[in-house]
């Protein structure tokens, strides 16, 4: 009995005349990973790119704040939560472990994964894409995936320098930082605005299963928090 795998592959190979047509072009494509057409839109100077990123994110109902550096983060978070009438409590990713929250004693900051009772999480984006105002998150011990989805409010922290023009630039950086090793974490999340649905009479509602509010804090400083 032939295995289903061999049966299916066999059928494909004979339909494609594989014996006489070695898959050279495909081999080359996997090796060279040519980029396709990259829209002009995101390709401006860094300042324009940053402005575009913020504008595109706001277009899809995220809120955006720019602060000078990591030292100003606790104040910005406290301000945002107070202004939007939310309790001063946070589930923070390990990737923000060296932020000193002590300037905001009212803020209750805990670590770990989201447990379903949390109102707000804060995590770090690996990159941003100006083209569509998209954030890119990598899963890992210091940035659990559930933080991006379970609590109704999500605060994303990103360095200005990590905002690229296009998706391709973020993939290139991901590969480069792995230094030739395996580069895909378990999960890469592109997030473009807060969760939404239009499944009931095509009425747009924010906050379907993922967060209803997405607040993006851009750190203009290059130093890592």
């Amino acid at each position: 009995m032939t295995l289903p795998r061999d049966q299916i592959l066999g059928r494909l190979k004979s339909a494609l005349d594989r014996e006489n047509r070695p898959p050279e072009a495909a081999r080359a494509r996997l090796r060279d990973r040519p980029a396709g057409l990259i829209p002009e839109r995101g390709q401006g100077a860094p300042a324009d790119r940053l402005a575009l990123f913020a504008a595109e994110a706001e277009r899809v109902e995220a809120t955006v704040a720019r602060i000078p550096g990591p030292a100003a983060l606790p104040r910005e978070v406290a301000r945002y939560l107070a202004e939007t009438n939310q309790p001063p409590a946070l589930r923070a990713a390990q990737s923000l472990a060296d932020v000193d929250w002590s300037s905001q004693p009212m803020l209750k900051v805990t670590g770990g994964t989201a447990d379903g009772a949390d109102n707000c999480s804060i995590s770090r984006a690996f990159g941003g894409v100006a083209e569509t105002g998209t954030l890119v998150f990598l899963s890992g011990p210091d940035n659990p995936t559930t933080l991006n989805f379970v609590p109704p409010t999500h605060i994303a922290v990103i360095r200005a320098a990590d905002i690229a023009g296009d998706y391709e630039a973020v993939w290139a950086r991901l590969r480069a930082e792995a230094g030739g090793g395996a580069y895909m974490p378990r999960t890469v999340n592109w997030v473009t605005g807060p969760s939404r649905t239009a499944d009931i009479e095509q009425t747009l509602l924010l906050g379907a299963h993922g967060p209803q509010r997405l607040h993006i804090v851009i750190l203009d400083d290059d130093a890592t928090p």
């Binding site: 595109e56 770990g112 378990r186 890469v188 592109w190 997030v191 969760s195 239009a198």
Partner: peptide, 23 residues
């Protein structure tokens, strides 16, 4: 839908990695 990009685009690869808290 006429969106520039859907809200969530996710790339899942294999199982949770050593040290991961979820997945």
């Amino acid at each position: 839908t006429g969106q520039e990009m859907s809200v969530y685009t996710t790339f899942c690869t294999g199982v949770r990695r050593p040290g991961d808290l979820d997945g």
